[in-house]
Nucleic acid binder design. Sequence first.
DNA 1: TGTACATCAGTGAACGCGCGTTCACTGATGTAC
DNA 2: TGTACATCAGTGAACGCGCGTTCACTGATGTAC
Lengths: 253, 253
Amino acid sequence: MDTAGDATRTAPRTARARVRAELTREIKDEARRQLASGGASSLSLRAVARELGMVSSALYRYFASRDDLLTALIVDAYDAIGAAAEDADRGRGGADGGARWLAVGHAIRRWAREHPQEYALVYGSPVPGYRAPEETIGPASRVTLVLAGIVAEAHACGHLELQPGSWQIATALGEDARRIAELAMPGVPPQVVVRALMAWTQLFGIVSFELFGHMVGVLEALDDFFDHAMQWTAASLGLVPPAGLHSSSAVVT
Amino acid sequence: MDTAGDATRTAPRTARARVRAELTREIKDEARRQLASGGASSLSLRAVARELGMVSSALYRYFASRDDLLTALIVDAYDAIGAAAEDADRGRGGADGGARWLAVGHAIRRWAREHPQEYALVYGSPVPGYRAPEETIGPASRVTLVLAGIVAEAHACGHLELQPGSWQIATALGEDARRIAELAMPGVPPQVVVRALMAWTQLFGIVSFELFGHMVGVLEALDDFFDHAMQWTAASLGLVPPAGLHSSSAVVT
DNA sequence: TGTACATCAGTGAACGCGCGTTCACTGATGTAC
DNA sequence: TGTACATCAGTGAACGCGCGTTCACTGATGTAC
């Protein structure tokens, strides 16, 4: 929602700038296409240039090196998955933490299944010889902040039902939890923060196992399993009263 | 525990065969070393040969192709992680499911941290252009069977404390669970099987996030967090009475 | 509105490199009698 | 124990390929006056 003035100031002014923005996009699109059919290590500047009808050296007007192009793709992937999570959560502010948790979880999984190589680029094995620069940190945390926000808001509204049972937390872990709470889930007690971290790793653990082939021959009802796991983690976080979960068809993908 | 006759029949008889076995091992060792410093895609037959003082074509006496060598490394990695799990569980048969679960979980994580690139080879993004042949299936399931065995034996001994609360399971998921129970955890009810699948993905989800860099700047007390998560999943499986878990120092890595 | 200059995009050739795999070969090791 | 032949390991040259990156260049687009 920019003002007209801001829009014209950030939008490309000259024809040259417009063409440049367009071609930058086309290069990334073609690179993504190559990513989809062969993974990060088979992404080649020459092949991208060839496919776009350019000479390979021309790409250096747009990206300083192959690693720069890779970084742009990584940032885009983080941004895309973050946006998918934000979109799924938009307009659901406040009340029903359980429904929000399920909606965001399913949105993350859906994006991952639709973009398996981009998912692998950011959540798979690190690309050998590639060091992620700092500019990836912000986009990387978007999706995590959506999940944390759900817990934080449920807590702020007093909707978090704390689980019974005293689970002691080791000192160092407790400090981490307090730090994380301050950053992303203000006021949320350490026990819940730790449980949120478990839910976070649970979610991505399932999605990664699915996409990386470890469920083949093991599980077939992948949708059901994921939904079940999301309901379980929602309950373990206190986003939902444990007795209230019976049907797995509450949220349909 | 072979008989002497079997041993002599399977052991290399001639000098040639002994040298061949030795060199095969050396090739894989060197390949592993290259894996450790650059990932699967930077594994090169020529570089391996160079390092061993051979000519590159000589490797084709030992492995029919680069993919064949990669397959051997994958099988070895699965076998190594499976053996690590089995070793940690050896001699603990029967009684204390919680302790076994923790010991095996920590052993898996320890192996992964000591062999990050081998872990990434099997649990990270699939190697582009490489299709895992059937011979990897057996070794791949070793580690999983150890975990399943702990749950199965706890159940068989009547030590499994079923969690309260009725969690309905979708039909298709229930069928998967029954099939898995038959294969790996006979007699274990579907609810527990599903919870075991969640514990399984939770475990590898944490290890992968750790090794692939997603905990950097988030969590520092990685040991504590993993131990906490393992205790939590053990309790959720009923391997341990929920009230019995207080200290996280029960199992030391 | 028109000119002079600066900026930029894209070209094409080249550098230097490493890769997987094949093939005809030499010489050593193993086997059968 | 000794000889004749078969098997195998390793060599070295070659094929054909693709890659990232640099560089001097041409011609088009934009800017300042």
